[in-house]
Design a protein around this nucleic acid. Structure first.
Lengths: 250, 250
DNA sequence: TCACGAGCCCAACCTATGTTAAGAGACGCA
DNA sequence: TGCGTCTCTTAACATAGGTTGGGCTCGTGA
């Protein structure tokens, strides 16, 4: 279930992700590839870290789909972010010791665990990488803000449309789309937890989006039929993702 | 309206703030005090930076009350954060060039503008300060997440109670409380924009909070009458503010 | 091969919150 | 001194979205 190794392909996911938001020098790339990692496989619906933990390593998602969430009274939960292969959702634990939320898997997932010490020493040796990692956490924050707009001010239809737009663009930036679609690894209940909606209402609105011909959703497969319409409906402007322009191309 | 200077008292606000979340060495403190700043005074309801700007300096709030917000279709807006003296709300512009939202004043405000170059060179000379500033942006992100919980999963009563708890603790951490109260520099409409509620409903719920004896609110003056009750009502747990324990003391 | 659970779907009903409208106090400005 | 302009307040009415409860389908494991 857990193997220690140092193989290239694993860290290359990380490179692809970081290079979607910054330029890396050859040395920086080398440094990243040399990071020691431990690969760990988890089933769906497992926690990677929990609220109040004090992790000593960061988790890099290699395969699968991960979410950040927080539980509140009477078993409700709010999902505050989705993470794809290449993302390091708990990078922040480097400088904020105690977790104030949890990270969990939505599907079977493989993560690479990278000791904090290794990352810190890498950053000391390559100060230029501070920018890359810091920037990654800042873009994370930008996504939180954008979701806040949705939760606070957009109706369910726009919220769902917006989420689909974001997920599509993010999948594409790390080459995980398939034509004009991608695999949506979240149940309607999980979408509801992310969007502040009940499962029933997510279902209702999904029907509307289908009826309006904006999307097709069969099983896990989400296909975007009318990108421009979907963007308009969700008031989606990818500026907040701060991707390099190549990755924004339509 | 704008004067260039290098006086201690201005930067001390920043020290007090940073020291509520990290420990600073004597040299780091010196470095911070030596930052060149330009002080600028703004009326209420002015923008400090706007969406799509590419600022070349960071704004440190010296006096007044600032908010982060984003406008959307049909004139709605969502406020995503409030900032008090000592905060540097656009620190992120250091590593994310284009603003994806705006910063505006809620009251007459004095800000200290610090050139990006100066901050970058300070960070190069004192790598320990990277931790302080990075951590500050991470805590900002933690506040966004906590607000998301409210917007997505808490009712209006809990949302408002939670906001008042957060503001009280944050004011106290930088010594801006006055007994068991502080000055709330936001209109009910602004609270609504922050909480995803209509002005009318904010007003309704405020009446309830008063009727239940949790708070008193006369003019700008917010007094907390039943701290424990208010915390319970808002499900407030200050963990996410990641303050040093001294500043969490009840 | 069947039973069970997970996920999806749908209908009827309910409620928290939005909307519109209007008045009352406070405060700055002419 | 009086006249707008904010802000707060309240009331009546409207609706998006929640809740409850049920039924259908499909995959998995005994």
């Amino acid at each position: 279930m857990s193997e220690s190794l140092n193989s290239r392909p694993e860290q290359e996911r990380l490179l692809r992700k970081l290079e979607s938001i910054v330029d890396l020098s050859a040395e920086e790339r080398q440094g990243l590839l040399a990071l020691p990692i431990t690969v760990k496989s988890l089933d769906a619906d497992r926690d990677i870290v929990r609220e109040r933990d004090r992790p000593a390593e960061c988790a890099l998602v290699l395969e699968g789909f991960v979410c950040r969430y927080k539980l509140i009274a009477d078993g409700k939960r709010q999902i505050t972010g989705f993470y794809l292969p290449g993302d390091i959702p708990d990078l922040q634990s480097l400088y904020v010791e105690v977790m104030d939320h949890s990270l969990g898997t939505l599907t079977a997932t493989r993560v690479a665990l990278i000791p904090h010490d290794s990352v810190r020493s890498l950053l000391r040796r390559h100060p230029g990488l501070v920018e890359a990692f810091w920037r990654d956490t800042l873009i994370d924050a930008a996504m939180f803000r954008e979701w806040m707009i949705g939760l606070g001010r957009r109706d369910a239809y726009a919220r769902i449309a917006h989420l689909f737009c974001e997920l599509f663009v993010r999948h594409r930036a790390v080459r995980l789309t398939n034509g004009d679609g991608f695999d949506l690894h979240a149940t309607q209940a999980e979408l509801g937890d992310a969007l502040g909606l009940s499962t029933v209402h997510v279902n209702r609105v999904l029907q509307d989006l289908r009826k309006d011909g904006l999307i097709a959703l069969r099983g896990k497969r989400l296909t975007i039929l009318e990108w421009d319409e979907l963007k308009r409906a969700g008031e989606f402007d990818p500026l907040y993702l701060h991707l390099k322009s190549a990755d924004l191309a339509e």
